[in-house]
Design a protein around this nucleic acid. Sequence first.
DNA 1: CCGGGTCATCAGGGATGCGTCAAAGTTGCC
DNA 2: GGCAACTTTGACGCATCCCTGATGACCCGG
Lengths: 228, 228
Amino acid sequence: MTRVLVVDDEPQIVRALVINLKARKYEVDAAPDGKTALELAASRHPDVVVLDLGLPDLDGVDVIRGLRGWTRVPILVLSARHSSDEKVQALDAGADDYVTKPFGMDELLARLRAAVRRAEPVGPGEDDLTTVETEGFTVDLAAKKVNRAGKDVRLTPTEWHLLEVLVRNTGRLVSQKQLLREVWGPSYGTETNYLRVYMAQLRRKLEKDPSHPEHFITEPGMGYRFEK
Amino acid sequence: MTRVLVVDDEPQIVRALVINLKARKYEVDAAPDGKTALELAASRHPDVVVLDLGLPDLDGVDVIRGLRGWTRVPILVLSARHSSDEKVQALDAGADDYVTKPFGMDELLARLRAAVRRAEPVGPGEDDLTTVETEGFTVDLAAKKVNRAGKDVRLTPTEWHLLEVLVRNTGRLVSQKQLLREVWGPSYGTETNYLRVYMAQLRRKLEKDPSHPEHFITEPGMGYRFEK
DNA sequence: CCGGGTCATCAGGGATGCGTCAAAGTTGCC
DNA sequence: GGCAACTTTGACGCATCCCTGATGACCCGG
């Protein structure tokens, strides 16, 4: 779940934000001043910060700097000041966006979504999800490679697709209908013979003893399962 | 140097932006409509896009989607529409920021800086990515040069672009669609014959035995893979 | 013991995708 | 305006993959 830190000294604004955010399944922390904001940011590690510039204790720009000293969390500034100078200062201090009050809730939420979205990592960083190992072979989902005894195994597109669905559900039973729909398309829910042919090919290429499979298990009448 | 793509059909706005950006040492491309914008984005790889929503040919939101289909480049939307709905649509389609006209140049530039800043990769870690070596040849991504047996190999722009995408994903399979979109642009997702022609040329220039490639591996039906 | 159903395996034929070559079209430069 | 380099397009042979039908093994209930 996405965690939001709301920093504002006006209770009614905080209330409005909290209600709207919680309704949209965000987890929300709130701070009434800069000092609390910095503490909460450190202890709660929010995924995005909504920061009012007019705080009682610290200058808003100093709060931004305080955060930017150690984190790249997206900061969305909220302010009553329309002056161009204020905006430039806040943005150059490290803010990601600047919304002037009064603001539309829809717009604010959209900007929030944009800020969270682009902070999402892409590509590497999920290595634990991209490779699956067994004693006999290794499947690399990102590189689309299968390695067996040091050598890459050549899989056809259909074979790979089938393997991918099974591996993504390691340990779970995948029904025949589900497999057929995923690999061959929605209208192929009943052609179970395709499955038999391609499961045999996968086993021949990957199992130690294809006629006594250890990893590609048949659940008679139901479907197939991949086990490490 | 940071490269900016300005998309707007009003010449005076483009002029103002270009002058201001160039004065601040940005490299600037300009497009008067959506189609040109998508082409320029594909061929020039800007670091940030400034996009007016009111274009003569395509809907602005469609341009955003066209870009987001293959790149995460920051998009800063410029628009005369103040309606909250428009903003939400643009932001949810993948825009990073939304500025309403008339805008202050200082503010726009500050938002631009913010967008570019947060797109910067975190920390070091790409130094080793700038050159890739194989037994047969060396690719220098920064210098855009390929060396083989002590001599530089001449590559055409398209050949280089294709090589670059493959090398940046060394070891990973890159799908045909992805390659076509990266090199030829978002609307070329199906022209797989281009790929065949240019892969052949790359192999002829770089492989020891072009008809038995060791580094530019084709995965039938799926895509291509570069191996060291 | 027999019969129906599901599953595994095999092999052939049609369709598809890839590599190659050559020619036409485009672009940019002198 | 002409030339050279590059890109696009089309055609062809060939390898590979996908589908299909046939056959036999296995499991269960009758």
